[in-house]
Design a protein around this nucleic acid. Structure first.
Lengths: 143, 143
DNA sequence: GTAACTGCAAAACTTTTGCAACCAG
DNA sequence: CTGGTTGCAAAAGTTTTGCAGTTAC
């Protein structure tokens, strides 16, 4: 998709979820969604925006990420305490996390989502809102 | 176990993992381990210590929790960004987390740990250091 | 025009750290 | 004694917020 057509598409998508398509939101949406699935932190997205000469403040990046999450455009992935990661893939799937590099990747769990929910023994009086699997990984050691 | 005998036991356990059994460490260890499995935050343990007239500072609670984790006495559970939970059960098991109450509970996943690891498609060149399953729950709605 | 949004700086939180005083061995 | 620990306060890191100014419509 060209930048031009992306802007039109992004503007439309923002309107659909009830967010006014401001310059900052459209620019951040492009960074987030134009190039496939991404896992990103606020700081990281801010640095990227600055590098691409997008005029935006860190506070707005935080606010925007939260608004996008509330609108269902993003999903938060909890892999590390003290830092938030956002995932542009909002469908049910799971993650691998490398503590050393801080990198998050999607993984295929050999279990179907419904199957997984069925396996879980839910505390009484509660219902499941989500199941998150985080596989912690590190570089394989060359012995 | 009586308080007296607990202190002797706790002192021994701390020595075993190479930590000097100071007043604060012994007192915190008792709060943590004397009454079955617990899931607790630093702030929460500090409040509990203060309520029981244990003379300890919040900084020491943080340091102690980290030392206990490094020593293998505790395990960290990542369920929420921006707050650390520690679990006194260090064996392989999984958690239910209620976002509303902030409460963490152990759950039984209907899958054996080895089986779970076998199912996962690990990114190439990486090996698994752990698999954490967090089931997000909320109160069942009475319709 | 006006309500929504942004930027900045300050605040709020959680967690870590530096260092003098303190305590266990 | 003496080195490991603690407490305090200060710092560090992430995220939120208050408010004056700007922008989308």
């Amino acid at each position: 998709m060209t930048d031009q057509s992306w802007v039109r598409y992004g503007v439309e998508r923002l309107r659909q979820v009830g967010l006014r398509p401001t310059q900052q939101r459209v620019a951040l949406a492009e960074l987030l969604f134009a190039e496939g699935d991404r896992h990103i932190t606020a700081e990281c997205l801010y640095d990227e925006a600055v590098a691409k000469n997008v005029k935006v403040s860190l506070a707005t990046v935080y606010n925007t990420l939260n608004q996008f999450r509330e609108a269902g455009l993003l999903r938060e992935v909890v892999v590390r305490s003290g830092k938030s990661y956002f995932d542009t893939n909002t469908t049910a799937h799971h993650h691998a996390f490398d503590e050393r590099t801080g990198r998050v990747e999607d993984i295929d769990l050999g279990v179907d989502e419904d199957e997984l929910r069925r396996l879980v023994e839910v505390p009484s009086g509660k219902c499941i809102t989500g199941v998150d699997v985080v596989v912690r990984v590190r570089d394989e050691e060359r012995a």
